[in-house]
């Protein structure tokens, strides 16, 4: 059995060469502390090469040669409230979090929400309200919020009368938000669909560089830059009918999730719906929301 035994201390003959350590343990620890403090993100220690691949260009851009210098710069300057340092922190968070998203991701949740829309409308009509507001928290490049825009349109529930539809995507990654505002997508964003699929043909124009969302579905959507850990990210969005925050919590500590749940709780109306990723849970992370099983999915409602 040809196994390398590192515990002997001395390398055995014919060993595979060691990988260069790109980030030292001390640098990794400092970086992990920083991103957790600022964004609630948990960095896993066994992914240092991935981390270095994601971040090395930030050092190049700033003309720095080590993560120690990078961390010193971030630490000192963000403490002084330096906007460039804050900008760099946001860029750092954006690189670390996976921006991967695509249209119709976890479609069963959209299908369930389609059904809930009837309840929402009934309640609003009874209460004399004429607006519906939905938030995509951690919206990345916009596929989720645009999927919701399409859903609202297809429901035809809010098409007539003086309904105001407010769809807001929030993300800490400015580069992702720029892409989201362009609403121009590659095949990657349709990985669950065939590019010949009726969905693509109906809602997108084909262009040389990709698929552009049609204006009718793009125009109701607004994007804003914000950190979900910061209550200010939700200013002006109080009384939301639904918040979608899917595949965001997987990167975060329980403490950060609890913090964000508090912000969601303040922002969501009492009868509102909170959707998280199907592999995520808020159970034992917050008492502010309780799970409900409806239409074959789990959705969270405010605790009584």
């Amino acid at each position: 059995m040809e196994i390398e035994n590192r515990r002997n201390g001395k390398p055995l003959p014919g060993l595979t060469r060691n990988l260069v350590t790109f980030i030292s343990e001390e640098e990794f620890r400092r970086l992990a502390d920083l991103v957790h403090r600022e964004f609630g993100i948990v960095l896993k220690g066994d992914r240092r090469l991935t981390l270095h691949t994601k971040l090395s260009h930030r050092l190049g851009l700033l003309g720095l040669s080590s993560y120690s210098e990078y961390l010193d710069m971030l630490g000192e300057n963000s403490a002084r409230g330096d906007p460039k340092a804050r900008g760099e922190l946001n860029a750092l968070a954006a690189e670390i979090m996976n921006n991967e998203t695509f249209f119709q991701r976890e479609k069963n949740q959209f299908e369930a929400f389609f059904v809930f829309l009837n309840d929402i409308k009934r309640r609003k009509v009874a209460g004399g309200e004429s607006s519906i507001n939905i938030i995509s928290a951690g919206c990345s490049t916009g596929e989720e919020i645009y999927s919701l825009s399409i859903l609202l349109f297809e429901s035809a529930l809010f098409a007539w009368g003086n309904w105001e539809t407010g769809l807001t995507g929030i993300d800490v990654d400015k580069s992702a938000l720029r892409k989201a505002r362009k609403a121009l997508y590659s095949n990657n964003s349709f990985r669950l669909l065939n590019e010949e699929d009726a969905f693509v043909n109906k809602y997108f124009h084909r262009e040389e560089s990709g698929f552009r969302l049609k204006r009718a579905y793009k125009s109701p959507v607004k994007f804003r830059h914000g950190n979900l850990m910061d209550p200010a990210a939700f200013d002006g969005l109080e009384g939301a009918d639904a918040i979608f925050c899917r595949n965001v919590f997987i990167y975060m500590s329980d403490e950060a999730i609890s913090n964000i749940a508090r912000n969601f709780h303040s922002c969501l109306r009492d009868e509102g719906y909170l959707f998280v990723g199907s592999t995520e849970t808020l159970i034992q992370k917050t008492d502010l929301f309780v799970p409900e099983c409806r239409e074959g999915i789990v959705v969270y409602r405010k605790a009584p």
């Binding site: 059995m1 040809e2 196994i3 390398e4 590192r6 515990r7 014919g14 060993l15």
Partner: peptide, 13 residues
């Protein structure tokens, strides 16, 4: 198991 142990196999294996 090898990963949990921190062991690595010789490439030839």
């Amino acid at each position: 198991i090898a990963e949990r142990l921190g062991d690595r196999f010789m490439p030839e294996y």
